[in-house]
């Protein structure tokens, strides 16, 4: 199990390195990862990224999308400074393992959260729509 996980992390680093060099992405750039093939979720997240640019003053952005769902994201809406990368499911999973272990500059666009679920009721997330959860929980846009 240990070796298997270390292999996944190392593979993730390799995949990421390849992308980073190809697209000239520097480590300081904010990273958004879209691992789920959920059109609605990804669309909302995309809008949140744009809102983040305006409200949180990120100067450079980049996001990585799993292969095959690019058509679901309306790229024409995005600002020019957002870079676009397309990779396979397999690579995506490796990269997520690597990011979770080594990078602190990555936001994963997923509704699967291992922590904090029971706080939802307390902080008023219970009963909210997917839009609201993405805005408040993933992007911290209040």
């Amino acid at each position: 199990m240990l070796l298997q996980q270390l292999f996944r992390v190392t593979m993730g680093k390799g995949c990421w390195e390849k992308i980073r060099r190809h697209y000239h992405i520097c480590p300081e750039e904010k990273m958004y990862v879209f691992p789920e093939c959920d059109e609605r979720l990804n669309r909302i997240a995309e809008e949140c990224i744009q809102a983040s640019i305006k409200t949180k003053f990120y100067t450079e952005l980049c996001f990585v999308v799993v292969g095959g769902v690019r058509g679901q994201i309306q790229t024409e809406k995005l600002e020019a400074k957002i870079k676009w990368v397309e990779i396979s499911h397999r690579e995506m999973n490796f990269i997520i393992d690597y990011f979770m272990f080594c990078s602190q500059n990555c936001v994963i666009i997923s509704l699967t959260r291992p922590e904090g679920r029971n706080l939802d009721r307390i902080i008023g997330l219970d009963g909210l729509t997917v839009e609201e959860i993405v805005q408040r929980c993933i992007f911290n846009l209040l």
Binding site: L6, V9, T10, K13, W16, E17, R20, P27, E28, Y98, F101, C102, S103, Q104, N105
Partner: peptide
């Protein structure tokens, strides 16, 4: 503190 993204950093983390 720079965001470390090198192979050396990964090796160290492992």
């Amino acid at each position: 503190r720079k965001i470390e993204d090198s192979w050396e950093n990964l090796q160290e983390r492992i």
